[in-house]
Amino acid sequence: MESRIIRAVDGIDFTVREGDCFAIVGESGSGKSTLGLSLIRLCPGDVSGEILIDGVNLLKLSEDEIRKFRGSKISIIFQEPSSALNPVMKVGDQLMEVFTVHGYSKSEAYQKSLQLLKTVGIPEAEKRMQTYPHQLSGGMKQRVIIAMAIALNPRLVIADEPTSALDVTIQAQILNLLKNLSQSYGLSTILITHDMGVAAELCNRIGIMYAGKMVEIGPLNSIFAIPLHPYTRALMSCIPRSLKENLKPLPGHVPDLSNPPKGCRFHPRCPYAKEVCTLEEPNLEKIDDRLVSCHRVGEI
């Protein structure tokens, strides 16, 4: 087999302030999940650059050091609650592991886990500790995973499509839970999603990602008020404002990242593309309170 170098994520630069929630929004295939895994250094490929938490560069840590970081300083919530839990291990044991691996005693771990299950809204916590994952519903499983992620009050929680695999009614509950938790714990969160609505629900700053690059970063309110990048606009039109309004799917799809288009990566799908867009790659430019990478930002 020949191997190709794929730059799933390229030249991403952003900051999450303490207690903030930052959303990364993009279509599937835009490199969001790769970015999420890279942040916690669980991505199988190479990552270069800097990932700083309280001034510590995660990419410079040894394998042992990053392991101590995972779970305690930085944690992640995955998309598929049913496959993210070990099917043959009791829920309680899996939860307690977060504590025991970071130096807590068994009894402390048990007490804290119990408390945690109550915090994330799981009734009959004692009983639930003794059950296996398949005995819980999807929403309950996701609550357990959220409990694991916030267990040690980490500096940063990455939530990778935390609601996409759930039923619509459950989605709202989980979103509410995340919102409450981030308020009461003062969590700093990175939310990865393809859904502008979900981002709007939870976050105060968003970054729009396309084909491994950020195309627009800024405060939620101003981006929602006036989206500047053509791709952001296209995404915005994907949110149905009322039930009558039909979803307008964006024509075309995310390019093959092993061979991205020249110039602006969005130009093949962009209704405003001009010759310059096919030749030169735009840089993120500061416009008022945000950053946008588009050659035609002032004109359209």
């Binding site: 392991r67 995972r70 496959s83 839990l85 070990n86 099917p87 970071h102 995973i145």
Partner: peptide, 29 residues
């Protein structure tokens, strides 16, 4: 290669612990 292995890693478990505590029981069934 299962997802729960990534979850275990994200909790800070070492490869060795993951192999003995998580993978083995699943694999031996």
């Amino acid at each position: 290669e299962k997802n729960y292995v990534i979850t275990a890693k994200s909790k800070g478990l070492s490869e060795r612990t993951i192999l003995y505590k998580h993978v083995l029981k699943n694999a031996l069934i």
